[in-house]
């Protein structure tokens, strides 16, 4: 195998490893919230992972600053909530989690994800 091919193999292996580490092996920091929390929608949700107490009403204030069509809707399937997020407008979503557990929320197409941990 010529040297250029060996370099391509090595770089490819590195590239695959990097993609795995960067996208699939990330550990999101958990942000604790009580009562209300602001979530910015820009290339994803920040904060992405929030933990909230069970049985207490929570208000999530979503503000979408990203015009990507994918992010137009936010879906909290476990809480039966689908909300349209107009650009640059604060949209409040209120609910009371009745049971504890981890609930994934996502954009309308299921491409961007966030997580709500109910303790």
């Amino acid at each position: 195998m010529s040297i250029d091919k060996i370099i391509v193999v090595a770089l490819s292996a590195l590239g695959i490893g990097f993609i795995y580490w960067y996208f699939l092996a990330k550990n999101e920091k958990e942000v604790e919230a009580a009562g209300s929390i602001d979530i910015t929608v820009e290339g994803g949700y920040s904060p992405e992972v929030i933990s909230i107490p069970v049985g207490k009403p929570i208000r999530l204030n979503f503000t979408r600053t990203d015009p990507t069509a994918c992010l137009e809707d936010v879906v909290l399937g476990d809480f039966k909530i689908r909300k349209n997020l107009p650009l640059n407008q604060k949209v409040a979503i209120e609910f009371t989690p009745e049971r504890s557990g981890e609930f994934v929320y996502s954009c309308g197409m299921g491409m961007y994800h966030g997580k709500i941990i109910v303790n």
Binding site: G15, I16, I19, Y20, F23, G77, R82, V104, M111
Partner: peptide
Amino acid sequence: QGSKAPIQRMADLISSYFVPIVLMLAIV
């Protein structure tokens, strides 16, 4: 309309890994 059908779970799982996997396949 905001709720999720059980049939969607599989699609959700796949789509969350989909793009990184395609990127890997592109390198391959």
